[in-house]
Design a protein around this nucleic acid. Structure first.
Lengths: 340, 340
DNA sequence: AATACTATGGAAAACGTTTTCCTAATATTT
DNA sequence: AAATATTAGGAAAACGTTTTCCATAGTATT
């Protein structure tokens, strides 16, 4: 394996000249650069990455900390796509991302180990493993980091997440645009912050003369089905339903089917996110979603900026929701006179 | 940041003693090891990982090469879980995995760059980016590697995949056990090797007096639906259907629903793999699947062995399929007399 | 002609470990 | 008691770059 020494000898220059030529220093003449490059090419020289990361004082890599399999893999069908996004923006700047699963108990120790052992220049951390203690460490030791998802406590962490409140607003606005005025909300339990944010967004947008009813339960298909039928059996007829997540929507759709209610003609249905099954229901779900790949891309870029300038003031970033209109929503004819 | 020098000074020993003590060399006395460890602890010393990987001649890391987003992320809902499995088995041996997306055009160049630049000790490569040229390079240059998935040409590559033929056999055997004798197969087009392998397995197991009919089409829900209705409109009544993948199964299920055929009472349905939507159909799909996490784990272990012993002879590995019996299969009463 | 710059490139330090080789002390064997 | 083997630990090389600092030669300025 050819080393920089071999190139130097062969090119009749010093080692440092080779290094400079190959790394684009302007103190080397054009001709010499050309010569060195040719020799390097001829010898099949590849800089030893290990030696490089050692000599430079940066690894040009970040690590992504996520929860263990049981906690994360199943719950987050988007994870690979986020990861792909992260990787793509890092790759552009010659950085790489290495994956590390860890228990929430070990995350503090691990973060320190990685950073003080200099095996990475920064940390990407999934919200499911961030704790207050970790937050302290990251801030105190000025570790460049981005949290994927919003931590569920106040902190100076830098995070990136989809804007659930805004998503709620978008869903509500769309239904209003379509002429709906009697709208029900199927949410999950109060301790689910995502659900609460979406509900908050919906309610803030839903003005008079809108009538809204909220019903809550566990985030499962079965519960969605149960809540759906409850809604339908009530006297006050609704024309649209908002389900705070895909599972609830699938369940609700079943309830509607069972009662012979045609979606979207009789009742419109709108939901959030984009689980793989969202495309495959009958009819396919209209949903307010985000570009998760892009979320990863943005996260990568942000982290890179923090690494370059650690003094950069805290900033967080919310990706913009996009409405993916499939076939569970349509115009409501009932209140036509109101809208015109 | 404390370095090994600081520890040596503080402990009153030489640098090499510290290194040896911390790395468990047996030439250092128990007491000295204890002393060094205490001092290291007190100073908060963490070995510089960059210096370590440089001095040792191994990175203790592998890179996972997969196709670009558009090629892979959507098509493979299991990818993150496989990755989690890989990471977990590597972590056990203090190895790490870094992710790298690449175009199939660049994969040769990239592999060489990574390996001759010594940025990793081995390669994990998704089958979607392996080419014959790559295969040559990997073998000629004796690069430790594992291909995730079976390459679609003969080679000396080391790959790991689920055993589709065996999966087919298992599905068929189960239906026979349940008493089914008139079985139809919905496959995808002939160029889909996975589908062909499964069909092959099914046919090899399905003995007389079984009647089987095969029908093929694109791998989409719509096509599944179309093929399903064709099957049902035929005079020769079938009692069970095998769909070579989830999408076809979902489509077929729709066709059955539409015709008022009750699954599994009138017709049993069995499929393969486990897309996230498999659990959420009505009724949930019975499927012959594999533990993808485990596939990752095995892949990781295998690669580690190849890294330790590059001369290890070629070996490939098929994970064992498992039957996940949900609610689309049941005993067939029609041919009871045959079975007893 | 003397001085100050500038452009170019080399020498050598630095990065922080691991690992090889050696020495001294101690234990064992003859 | 001498010879030999064993053990513990230190000195220094090695790993292959990057980067700092300096030297030289040529060019511009006074």
């Amino acid at each position: 394996m050819a080393t920089i020494k071999d190139v130097a000898r062969e090119a009749g220059t010093s080692i440092s000249t080779v290094s400079k030529a190959l790394n684009g220093y302007y103190t080397i003449s054009e001709e010499k650069i050309e010569l060195v490059k040719q020799v390097a090419e001829r010898l099949g020289y590849r800089p030893n990455a290990r030696a490089q990361t050692f000599a430079r004082k940066a690894t040009r890599s970040v690590v992504l900390l996520t929860g263990l399999k049981k906690d994360i893999a199943f719950e987050n069908p988007h994870m690979f796509e986020i990861l792909a996004g992260i990787e793509s923006s890092l790759r552009e700047k010659d950085y790489s991302v290495t994956l590390r699963h860890c228990d929430i108990k070990d995350v503090c120790f691990l973060s320190r180990e990685i950073m003080s052992g200099k095996s990475a220049d920064g940390l990407m951390i999934h919200a499911s493993v961030v704790t207050k203690e970790l937050s302290m460490i990251l801030c105190r030791e000025e570790i460049p980091h981005i949290v994927i998802g919003k931590p569920d406590f106040r902190s100076n962490l830098c995070w990136i997440d989809n804007n659930n409140e805004l998503s709620g607003e978008i869903a509500a606005r769309r239904l209003m645009e379509l002429g709906h005025r009697k709208i029900a909300l199927i949410g999950s339990l109060e301790d689910d912050r995502i659900s609460e944010d979406r509900i908050k967004g919906v309610l803030s947008e839903l003005g008079e003369p809108c009538i809204a009813k909220i019903i809550r339960g566990d985030s499962t298909i079965e519960e969605g089905e149960r809540m759906g039928s409850i809604l339908l059996s009530e006297p006050n007829k609704i024309t649209a339903i908002i389900c705070v997540n895909n599972l609830l929507a699938v369940g609700c759709l079943r309830a509607l089917n069972e009662k012979g209610i045609v979606v979207p003609d009789d009742v419109s249905l709108i939901t959030f996110d984009e689980y793989p099954l969202a495309k495959y229901t009958i009819p396919p779900l209209t949903t307010v979603s985000i570009d998760v790949y892009d979320l990863g891309v943005q996260a990568g870029k942000l982290l890179l900026r923090k690494i370059k300038k650690p003094e950069l003031s805290i900033q967080s970033y919310s990706t913009l929701p996009v409405l993916v209109e499939r076939h569970t929503t349509t115009r409501c004819l009932l209140f036509e006179q109101d809208t015109v």
